[in-house]
Deep mutational scan, measured.
Amino acid sequence: NITNLCPFDEVFNATRFASVYAWNRKRISNCVADYSVLYNLAPFFTFKCYGVSPTKLNDLCFTNVYADSFVIRGDEVRQIAPGQTGNIADYNYKLPDDFTGCVIAWNSNKLDSKVSGNYNYLYRLFRKSNLKPFERDISTEIYQAGNKPCNGVAGFNCYFPLRSYSFRPTYGVGHQPYRVVVLSFELLHAPATVCGPKKST
């Protein structure tokens, strides 16, 4: 009989979030998941669920729940959905087409922007091929755009693959930082360890 609440607040209220290319994953298990708490945590810009209804979450049980978190800019949030393409979905964080879970995003301009520009958040701009779903690539190998090998040196047709967002508070919403948490629900042929409040007794 599990009584402890799932530590969603640790994920959502973390002081620092990860850069999207090096997104963070927390496995959540053996706890009571009260998803209604999430609705009250922040004024969400996005709370979209796929393959599951957000209002039914509190009635369900899962084997595992994974919470992935990272920062992107406002106009990239739409890429965090099944079947999307674009720089983020292709080279940084890719959801599977049959994704079961929820994408939660909110504006973090007050936390993640600086007047002089916050350069701490990076994204991958160049990659030889698209990522597979939930693949994480943290390599910093020089990207070869031409025929000549780069031998690890940046220059003509040889690019450092990561680029930094420079978040400034005066930017338009599309270029402001957004914190994203992706909850993916895993149903294996194994005992369910993460249940809503109704199912945990």
Rank of each mutant, 00 (worst) to 15 (best):
Gly172Asp: 15
Val52Thr: 08
Glu141Ile: 07
Asn30Trp: 06
Ser53Asp: 15
Pro54Cys: 07
Ala105His: 07
Asn120Glu: 14
Val77Cys: 02
Ser184Leu: 07
Lys56Phe: 06
Pro177Gln: 04
Ile104His: 00
Phe62Thr: 09
Asn58His: 12
Asn151Phe: 11
Ala105Pro: 00
Gly155Trp: 06
Asp34Arg: 03
Lys199Thr: 14
Asn40Ser: 12
Glu10Gly: 06
Glu10Pro: 04
Glu186Gly: 08
Ser36Tyr: 04
Asn24Glu: 14
Arg25Cys: 03
Tyr21His: 07
Gly196Val: 10
Asp9Glu: 13
Gln84Arg: 08
Lys110Phe: 07
Tyr121Ser: 04
Leu125Ser: 15
Phe47Ala: 10
Cys158Ile: 02
Cys49Tyr: 00
Lys199Gln: 14
Pro7Phe: 07
Arg124Val: 04
Lys132Thr: 09
Asn147Phe: 09
Phe156Asp: 15
Tyr66Ser: 08
Pro161Leu: 02
Pro7Glu: 12
Cys102Ile: 02
Gly86Pro: 02
Asn92Lys: 03
His175Phe: 11
Leu183Gln: 00
Asp68Asn: 01
His175Ile: 06
Ser164Pro: 13
Asn87Asp: 09
Asn13Lys: 05
Ser69Ala: 04
Ala89Val: 04
Asp68Met: 02
Asn151Ser: 11
Gly152Pro: 06
Ala81Thr: 03
Asp34Thr: 05
Gly152Lys: 10
Glu10Asp: 10
Ile2Gly: 13
Val32Phe: 09
Asn151Thr: 11
Lys198Gly: 15
Phe185Tyr: 09
Arg168Lys: 15
Ala89Gly: 04
Phe134Ala: 06
Val77Phe: 02
Gly117Ile: 05
Tyr21Asn: 05
Asp68Arg: 02
Gly196Asn: 11
Phe134Thr: 05
Val65Leu: 13
Thr140Cys: 09
Ser139Ala: 08
Tyr119Gln: 15
Asn120Gln: 14
Ile72Ala: 03
Tyr93Asn: 02
Gly172Gln: 14
Arg168Ser: 13
Ser164Gln: 13
Ala67Leu: 11
Gly174Gln: 12
Glu10Trp: 04
Arg127Ser: 05
Pro177Leu: 05
Thr170Phe: 10
Pro197Arg: 15
Ser116His: 14
Phe167Ala: 06
Asn58Thr: 09
Leu183Asn: 00
Cys31Gly: 04
Gln79Glu: 07
Lys56Asn: 12
Glu141Arg: 08
Leu60His: 10
Leu41Pro: 08
Val20Asp: 04
Gly83Phe: 10
Arg16Ala: 11
Ala42Met: 11
Pro7Arg: 12
Val194Trp: 09
Val37Ser: 14
Ser139Leu: 03
Ile72Asp: 01
Asn130Glu: 11
Ala105Val: 07
Phe8His: 02
Val173Phe: 11
Glu10Val: 07
Ala81Asp: 03
Leu111Lys: 10
Asp97Val: 09
Pro177Arg: 02
Leu162Phe: 07
Leu125Ile: 15
Cys6Phe: 05
Leu57Asn: 05
Ser53Gly: 09
Asn87Trp: 08
Cys31Ala: 06
Ile104Asn: 00
Gln84His: 05
Ile2Ser: 13
Pro149Met: 09
Ile72His: 01
Lys132Asn: 09
Asp75Thr: 06
Lys132Glu: 12
Gln84Asn: 05
Pro177Tyr: 04
Glu186Ala: 05
